[in-house]
């Protein structure tokens, strides 16, 4: 695998083909557990891990699996990886495991993971599948953590509360009181807020894309104009 394709994979995962904002997959955890940063971090970390493991294993067995049972096999691999993650979290951060509840086992049905296994990992080499899994997971995590911080900030006026659930005792003091609001925006941490923030993020991405495109067009036209003047 050369550098160009690695660059392509990074760009695809983080921006151009972002699983959460463009493909609109994995919306269930994206909206459900992003009412605080620590929950978003915990679940997106778990998803990233499962995505890398499943992409790598699917790529490993891609030549021996018959085509008509492939989805079943992929789902079994993913479910096994999720069970491992589930038990690990139960052992090492039990409180967070309890807060995340059913959304941890539900990583199995996250559309991104099956989607990447079926559309990328089962057609590509192990190293390519591994980096694809990593960057797609990173793109998803970035959007999740971003949503977590926005909603936590609007809803409570503070950031990084309860980080000790994930990073141990020392992280208790990480809570950062950013805004002193007497009446925090409760809607932001409740279900409707999740939809509204997600909608605004998608719109923001569209707006940035249009601006970049217009600028590129504008500079191309300017270059064209300069060239015609020279003639």
């Amino acid at each position: 695998m050369n550098n160009a394709s690695l660059y392509q994979l990074t760009l695809d995962g983080l921006w151009k083909n972002n699983p959460a904002l463009v493909q609109l997959l994995g919306l269930c955890p994206l909206l459900a557990v992003t009412d605080s940063t620590v929950k978003a971090l915990g679940l997106s970390g778990a998803t990233l891990f499962v995505l890398v493991v499943s992409n790598t294993s699917v790529s490993l067995i891609r030549t021996v699996v018959a085509d008509n049972i492939r989805l079943t096999v992929f789902i079994m691999i993913i479910a096994a990886a999720v069970t491992v993650t589930d038990l690990l979290m139960q052992a090492y951060s039990y409180e967070l495991y309890q807060i995340l509840g059913i959304f941890l086992p539900l990583i199995t049905t996250n559309g991104i993971i099956v989607g990447r296994a079926d559309s990328f990992a089962c057609k590509n080499s192990i190293s390519a599948a591994l980096s694809d899994g990593f960057f797609m997971g990173l793109g998803f995590s970035a959007v999740m953590v971003l949503m977590g911080t926005i909603r936590e900030l609007l809803g409570t006026g503070a950031l990084f509360a309860d980080m000790q659930l994930l990073f141990g005792e020392g992280a208790e003091s990480w809570r950062w009181e950013l805004l002193h609001i007497d009446y925090p925006l409760l809607a932001a941490v409740s279900p409707p807020g999740a939809f509204l923030v997600a909608g605004c993020l998608i719109a923001l991405k569209n707006q940035i894309d249009t601006c970049v495109e217009r600028r590129a067009q504008g500079s191309a036209e300017a270059a064209g104009a300069v060239r015609s003047e020279h003639r």
């Binding site: 939809f195 997600a198 909608g199 998608i202 719109a203």
Partner: peptide, 8 residues
Amino acid sequence: AIGMITAG
């Protein structure tokens, strides 16, 4: 995006 907003 508008789908999300209406869902909200």
